[in-house]
Design a protein around this nucleic acid. Sequence first.
DNA 1: GTCGTTGTCGTCACTTTGACGATAAGGCCC
DNA 2: GGGCCTTATCGTCAAAGTGACGACAACGAC
Lengths: 227, 227
Amino acid sequence: MDFEPLGVAADLVILTVREGSLQVLLIRRGIAPYRGRWALPGGFVRPKEDLEEAARRELQEETGLLSDRIHLEQVATYGEPGRDPRGRVISVTYLALVPDLPSPVAGTDAASAEWVAVDEVLTDQDRLAFDHHRILTDAVERARAKLEYSPLAAAFCPDEFTISELRGIYEAVWGVQLDPRNFHRKATKTDGFVIPLGATTTRDGGRPAQLFRRGPAATLHPPLTRG
Amino acid sequence: MDFEPLGVAADLVILTVREGSLQVLLIRRGIAPYRGRWALPGGFVRPKEDLEEAARRELQEETGLLSDRIHLEQVATYGEPGRDPRGRVISVTYLALVPDLPSPVAGTDAASAEWVAVDEVLTDQDRLAFDHHRILTDAVERARAKLEYSPLAAAFCPDEFTISELRGIYEAVWGVQLDPRNFHRKATKTDGFVIPLGATTTRDGGRPAQLFRRGPAATLHPPLTRG
DNA sequence: GTCGTTGTCGTCACTTTGACGATAAGGCCC
DNA sequence: GGGCCTTATCGTCAAAGTGACGACAACGAC
């Protein structure tokens, strides 16, 4: 077999919810092409390295996060000839959902990495290098859809969270307001979504709230709705 | 940039519903590795060819189908080192949903291509070459899930179809029995799912049934359920 | 203690669901 | 034509789920 010269990259859409908005981790490119523009973190897959392994490695390099406990899933692969001016590069894109980190991003490239509101990035078609605008659009769309029928929202939360905090995730990702009372009913009654811990917290102010952790459910029955 | 020697393949999971069961198009491999074993159709992406373009080309080569009208979507990409004994090969997998073809498969490789029931293939871990068992599992899982919230089932039907035929798709893909009366109510009342044509057919026997075509909806509200 | 804030439980009208009866309208066989 | 089989389609009804919203609980701030 002989192959054309071609590289495979693992790119990451790392999302979090901070200050009530959905944000993505971007890095400022220090080298050509697209020098000075923002881009999704990522890098080439090494020989003998699995795709997901490469994604986890990049994730750790960029965020310093122990990637074991982070939700990471493959979203799509982009391979249009010409998408990278350096040559043929296939980009396998992964979506990572991380909790709001108390510490700032602490990766090796931390100096040039930054959380930016997704809405803000997507309003400007040319903010991102390469075809990253489209990649981000697709990944965010996937995340929004998955919140409905999967317990994924909890991946944005710390290990212990309140129902309000969970609701805040939905509101930020979907960009809607949800009724606290109905949301509380649905979240706590949906089988295997959240597990009460017995303890409470007052960190959100007001009456102390029950703390929960993620339940074992892989899909939500019934699904949560955006309306 | 220098690259390790590496190939990118577009592989296809082509599904149809025939005789009440979900079937997949497999080809018998004529050359090593895995000579004589069944495998998913596919082939290497050519220089200057987009991934989806490659998938459509393979689809046409294998089935002779004008791929314009065929539902084709990317499912996942597999790149584990060692998944292909010939060297590093990244497989970008596409899912194609085709109607039950009146003519037998008429591709260039028709002699070695065959429809096989998915259930039958998946019961035997070693029936397929490479990691195609896993790829097929993932693709079928995707198809099953998407029937719930997307109008995709209609992609298995000819242009004009009856509600019963549509129900037959769901029953075959999900492997369940659905109540004809409730299904009829949901399918016809879900906004934009199906459009009545006014004409009827008796091809299914019994009372003449209304003919429908696919509606414009991209997602189903409310979704159809498997129970 | 009062006030403001957030959490949690309840109520109620409305819709949706699933189970199933009933009838419609063809073909087939005699 | 008449019975009978098959599938299509409409209706009914109880149970469950949904969205809107009232009410009260339990904290901190002052």
